[in-house]
Design a protein around this nucleic acid. Sequence first.
RNA 1: GCCCGGAUGACGAAAUCGGUAGACGUAGCGGACUUAAAAUCCGCGCCCGCAAGGGGUACGGGUUCAACUCCCGUUCCGGGCACCA
Length: 869
Amino acid sequence: MQDKYTPASIEHAAQEHWEKTAAARAVEDVARPKYYCLSMFPYPSGKLHMGHVRNYTIGDVLSRFYAMQGYNVLQPMGWDAFGMPAENAALANNVAPAAWTYANIAHMKQQLQALGFAIDWQRELATCAPDYYRWEQWLFTRLYEKGLVYKKLGTVNWDPVDQTVLANEQVIDGRGWRSGALIEKREIPMYYMKITAYAEELLSELDNLSGWPEQVRLMQKNWIGKSVGVRFAFPLADDPDEKLWVFTTRADTIMGVTFVAVAAEHPLAARAAANNPELAAFVAECKQGGVAEADLATMEKKGLPTGIFVSHPLTGEKVEVWVGNYVLMSYGDGAVMAVPAHDERDFAFARKYGLPIKQVIAVPDETFSLDGWQEWYADKNRGVCLNSGPYDGLDYSRAVDAIAADLAAKGLGEKKTQFRLRDWGISRQRYWGCPIPIIHCPKCGDVPVPDDQLPVVLPENVEITGAGSPLSRLPEFYECKCPKCGGAARRETDTMDTFFESSWYFLRYACPDNATAMVDERVAYWCKGGIDQYIGGIEHAILHLLYARFFTKLMRDAGLIGDLGEPFANLLTQGMVVAPTFYREGENGKKQWLNPADVDVSTDEKGRPTGATLKADGQPVIIGGTEKMSKSKNNGVDPQALIDQYGADTARLFIMFASPPDQSLEWSDAGVEGAFRFLRRLWKLVHDHVQNGVTAVCASGDGLSAAQTDLRRKLHQTMSKVADDYGRRKQFNTAIAAVMELLNACDKTDLSGPAGRALAQEALESAVLLLFPIVPHIGQALYGELKPGADACRAAFPQADPAALKQDEIELVVQVNGKLRGAIRVAVDADKAAIEAAALANAEAVKFMDGKAAKKIVVVPGRLVNIVV
RNA sequence: GCCCGGAUGACGAAAUCGGUAGACGUAGCGGACUUAAAAUCCGCGCCCGCAAGGGGUACGGGUUCAACUCCCGUUCCGGGCACCA
């Protein structure tokens, strides 16, 4: 055995061995329980960043741990390969998106392999490959025929200078990121997925996802946003046959309505604007700016009266219609009733424009003042109706029932369940995505592409200009024949949202080689009961995970995957790896993001950054916020330097030791050295032991000294702890700390003599196996040295021996009035009375009881005694 | 703005179900070994106080024999907000 730990050669040898023995190959085997361990596949942005290393190391630790527990493990990997960055790279560097993407895949695959992940590469897939996306085109046409895909107008960000649609990310402070032009909203026809048809099931099944973090279930629940309320109509004062519909969850406040607000896009707004130039200007102003909800919600609330009046459905009173920039056309009917007395936003609006405020819910006298309003809203107070005629004195639910009944009797409304969730618009006016398989025929309308003409292949020889969709400039792509009538037709040139690809890739991993079907019976084996573990960033808590759940239900109902309704049985949401951002501002205010590796930061004595300069020119740069590592902010830290210097095991160990996986981690490589030192120390311990000859392991505690017995107990306690940390808690930093503690204890114990050496053998073999899931390369090498001819990949995970865990005496802490005063040793099976007596006899306890009698004694078994005086 | 999280030594963190706050590691300081350096090993390390003791887990309250942990309020930081992935 070599005396020096040399990661490069050790890792090379281990990887070669795994390759030769096909250690990561997953083969269906009904005789063994399966464990499908899935990590979110990466976007091939160029190189791995620390977030990837963290994500895939967690997956690999779990995969290897469950393999050691006897499971048949599947750990696949692929590439979420369509998306905007490829087009941006094409613009910036004049490379074809396909070539750029495939080059990135090749590089990142090699990086993943260098990290030693036990991935079954035979199942690798890339979503930009026609043999992958053809199946989603196929599914799309099925869903189109079922009415689960439909076409309607949708609002997009329009850049009037570049004449192109922009993503929300490309709109900065209301301007296009390339052109700097003021962005406008524009309505265009798009295809939508009817996710709202599944809203109820997506919501109710959250309760069954016990393997998901509560936080994620709550976010999804709020996103779906089921609310039961009343949808009702205000007849127009001039023309009672025409009605303005609204939805409210607070029908009990209907008698307090003092105005109605509609979105700028609402037909009534357009009608009023026709002969009101001021209003027309306001409606036009509302069209400025992007469509992102965060921007809309933080805008200053503005409005203008339309001069149109409606009648209150219950009182007949005239109420004016306003246009409000805070009313969303995409939610409900694009109009809301306003009750300034009992809604914070309506209140602010009414105050701003001097509109009447009419209180209709009783509030406690002491809080009743206009200034007290705000506080009161925050409580979501639901009081009893007041100033509400026939409804006075009714509480919330009685009032809502009575009002809904009265509205229904007039044919003006009814109770309605409404969801916040909207249908999913999937059309993108971009090139690097999966073509939507529809043909537009002047005679037959929209015709889905027939199966025998799939896939609609995305052409790769295109010119990216940043203006408009390249496909719509490519006659050889869009000119086609109608599949129905054979006449000249035009192919759809929009592509699909890339969330489409990532909504079902985990099913395709089960059967990536199937050329004749989207999925096959192998899904039933690997996905039975759901994928056993899904691991990925918390930033995907809503959209991706919701779409993946939706797709699984769609595919189930299409008869493709049996009764599998929920894809992920257990979910681990990894905290983000965040890093500081740095930038400089260009001439037109555009930000040029600089990588942290290229920047020097100066700090004050407290470690707070005071300034930063670019290494290349020594000139100052602006310090941005600390954000998740991303391509767009250029703050990803490349792990390659770390791997090159210390090896994959150190990188893996360090990132697992740095913090628990669900916590966000601000990147700093301080401490990497320590992880490497630990591995070197482990190597040396094994080396020194092996130099004196390996032995059989200590099979029982016989012949051990007291100190050795204690060590052996600690060893077996560590086995339990580490298995619990990996399997149940999924907290790897404490598992590593436990093994470090064990090795510290080994150092402090005399392990000479035959019994001691057998114990050392047992401790070292165990420690190597306990760490194997995290640092498999060094583990492979050391285990082979400790047990010549043995393969760590085939070893079982160490299991604690209950006999070794036995203890006769334990220490209990003694408190007086909750303050720590002393400690006592008692027999492990001592009863309460004996423990109390021992505690009362403790010298420190006696001192602090100060002669007073114990009022109460609390005994916490195995922990402490608290004497209350 | 709305929804969801987080905050503990100089730093990353631990304390798993309300029960010894700071395990484990980093950086630092002191020592051993060495001609020296590196490496390695040993020790010290929250604050006030001579001590006894007291205080301390972002901040302000509360519940409890006992609170980092539960409740109410606040501040700051992060994620998501439907076209970044």
